[in-house]
Design a protein around this nucleic acid. Structure first.
Lengths: 188, 188
DNA sequence: TATCAATTTCAGAAACTTCTGAAAAGACGA
DNA sequence: TCGTCTTTTCAGAAGTTTCTGAAATTGATA
């Protein structure tokens, strides 16, 4: 592996993390190398830096492209493909969440809805269905919230995240201000 | 696999999802079976339902216990261990996020902080460090937000998630209302 | 202490994933 | 068209994870 120690540490850790999240180690490493690189890299440069086979890099890049996580670029007078990550880390987060939702959450919601529509006979099945209903509602709540969040521009998103639970305070204030006097505030 | 078709579909899907998130398929299936069960189950009952070996179930249950995702119970006059998931799905979410943070996010933040403290020589390394800084700040923002959220009780959490981006509207209103008292507004 | 039921451990088998080198395919200019 | 440079594909090797059955351990009871 032909990398400065600082970068190497990061790349190895990132590959490791990747494999805990169902992403193949090399794919994670390729992404890490691109992420810290000053400029787009071609496949051979990645091979050099990581010390893995050319074909492995080719497959890894293909996977990253399928996930929309890298951008392909060309330089004038050079036929090779150059790859880069988006400069904006928020763009990366958005893509990651979006793709993961598309591949895993949405199909799960579909499956849950289908199972909830079935007529069942036994008590055990009725109980199972009730549980699946709870899970379905949870997923719906999260995807609904996410759907709202992704529409916000990054500054506002940061603003909200930074406020954190303080939003709650603002909501209480709103309650007090809008229903003057009345029962506002903590009631649930 | 000895399960009603409805449950079987769910269990298989859940196992599949698990393996995409770095959780072994059987462990996912065991969890799914416990999740929809009306009552706590002992290891042999899980073996029956899933048709996998007793030792496999034993290892799976051990892993789920290490993740705090199942509760062990005993019945009077029965030496066997019975396992159940929490009844409250929100409790499940909280545990999952907490454990994942502890195992993956926190160590990553530690690593990033260590790399950011290093003095480096080359331009490439300085650029890499800047990128790691961006990633670090992103992770900090998320964990800070999460730290706020986890303190909220479930009803308030649901309230916030349901509002979604409408919170933004309330914040704007707050801005308008507080501005003419002095310090209000966008500043942080 | 011996017995018995339940659980855990673990070495090796089975299944699965990842990786490689070699060959094929594609793209471009001469 | 050909030659060259590049990327992709793919069969099998290497590596890793998961799973099993048999044996060991635990712990309660007599």
């Amino acid at each position: 592996m032909q990398l400065p120690p600082l970068v190497q540490t990061f790349v190895l850790h990132f590959g490791e993390m990747g494999s805990r999240w169902g992403i193949n180690r090399t794919v994670g490493q390729i992404y890490a190398v691109l992420f810290v690189s000053e400029r787009p890299l071609n496949a051979d440069e990645i091979v050099e830096r990581l010390g893995v086979s050319r074909s492995n890099v080719s497959m890894g890049l293909k996977e990253l492209q399928a996930w929309n996580l890298v951008r392909l670029q060309h330089r004038p007078g050079d036929r090779r493909d150059y790859f880069a990550t988006p400069e904006d880390v928020w763009q990366i987060v958005r893509t990651l969440v979006e793709e993961r939702k598309k591949r895993e959450i949405d199909p799960t919601l579909t499956m849950l809805r289908e199972l909830l529509m079935q007529e069942v006979g036994t008590e055990a099945e009725r109980h199972a269905q009730a549980r699946l209903g709870e899970m379905h509602d949870l997923f719906e709540l999260f995807t609904g919230w996410y759907d709202d969040m992704r529409r916000l521009d990054t500054d506002r998103l940061i603003q909200l995240l930074t406020l954190g639970a303080k939003v709650q305070k603002v909501l209480e204030m709103k309650d007090r201000l809008t229903r003057f006097g009345g029962r506002g505030g903590k009631g649930d």
